Amino acid sequence: MPELAVLFAALAVLLGLARLAGRAMARLGQPAVLGEILCGVALAPAGQVLPAPVESTLTSIAQLGLVLFLFTAGARLAPSMTAAHLKAAVIPALGALLVPLAMGAVLAGWLARRHAPAGTGPFVVFAAAAVAVTALPVLARILAERGLLDDVAGRRALSAAAVTDVAAWALLAIAAASLHGWSSTSSLPAVAALAVLPVLARARIGRWVARLSPPSATVVLVAAACAAAAATDAAGLHPAIGAFFAGAVLGHAVPVIEPAALVAPAGSLLAPLYFVLVGRTVDLGGFDVALAAETATIVAVAVAGKYGGAYLGARLAGVPPHPAGVFAALMNTRGVTELVFVSIGLGLGVIDSAFYTAMVVMALVTTAMTGPLLTRLSRQREGV
């Protein structure tokens, strides 16, 4: 069979399976991404059954889906990054960021001897940031489903998640740059200029893009996402980093056209393919007793650091106990952001496949526990 026919057939099968698995998980009250990841895990034992060129093309298409997905995630951050929202969320956000960062760094120092192929320094920075991540896209979806998107608690959680995620992505960029002995930082001024330029010309860009038809505006935004991805990739970082920050910048620069809404359909179509391929890279065959113990420790530290730090920060900000508990449960959601984060770390060579598997398990556990935990807190408030 011609390779092009194999490629299209593989796309049809993988996207179809991803959709079915996502819907099945959604019916259980869980995010669809959990089903997409588990679909990939189920396919992993089959190994590489497709020709190498087809596998390579699928990976490239999945990477495009990742770039568009993270551009959308960055654009969705913009409304939560206003001065008023950040002022109300700064103390809770610091608790949700600094405590898991510190606990993650201590944990990484212990794990580095087994799982740091590129050295202890980049591994510790990466692992600490990975523990501190909150999944903003999944968080927004959970808030919308529970009618909390416009609630004070919902806005607080979104703003705090924006702060923690921007900090985590910045740390990922630092870890990536350090892999090259900081030689790649010679290219970082160009990347910074690419990110700052839309801000400096905000009014002009806003007026120009606002005059475009939705299809034309979509093309401009997708081109911007790809250009930013190419810039950070050329700088020795990961293309997804550029896409994320470009989305955050353009979300502020041209809010009138809602960049996230225009680009989201393309990202939603291709991103499931990426998460299926992420699941295929999970090596459950290497899950020995030592890795199982490390995974349990990672999950415990991640939950204690994120939930405890977020709760402490909210209480210090004067939030009552119950809303502080809801805030902490929401901030503990890792979801797709964590999965993307650790897959980038694996691709950069900062972590090994065993640590990657453990972090995927942690992401799945912390995401799956969010819904039941929120339901339990809701029943406690109602006295059920």
Results as ranks from 00 to 15, higher is better:
6 V>S: 00
6 V>C: 01
9 A>H: 12
10 A>C: 11
12 A>N: 08
14 L>Y: 10
16 G>A: 02
35 G>C: 06
38 L>V: 04
48 Q>S: 15
49 V>A: 11
54 V>I: 11
59 T>G: 12
61 I>L: 11
62 A>L: 10
65 G>D: 03
77 L>G: 14
84 A>D: 08
90 V>E: 08
103 M>T: 05
120 T>A: 13
121 G>L: 01
136 L>K: 05
138 V>S: 08
140 A>M: 04
142 I>K: 08
143 L>M: 04
148 L>F: 07
160 A>W: 10
160 A>F: 15
162 A>C: 06
172 L>R: 02
177 A>L: 13
179 L>G: 13
187 S>I: 07
189 P>L: 08
190 A>Q: 07
195 A>T: 00
199 V>S: 14
206 G>L: 10
219 V>I: 12
220 V>E: 03
224 A>N: 07
225 A>F: 00
230 A>T: 09
233 D>V: 04
234 A>G: 03
235 A>D: 14
237 L>H: 06
246 A>N: 05
262 L>S: 01
263 V>L: 04
265 P>L: 13
273 L>H: 10
277 L>W: 09
281 T>N: 09
297 T>W: 14
303 V>H: 11
311 Y>Q: 15
318 G>T: 05
330 L>P: 09
341 F>M: 05
347 G>T: 02
348 L>G: 02
349 G>K: 00
349 G>Q: 06
361 V>K: 01
364 L>C: 13
369 M>S: 09
370 T>M: 03
377 L>Q: 01
381 R>F: 10
381 R>S: 06
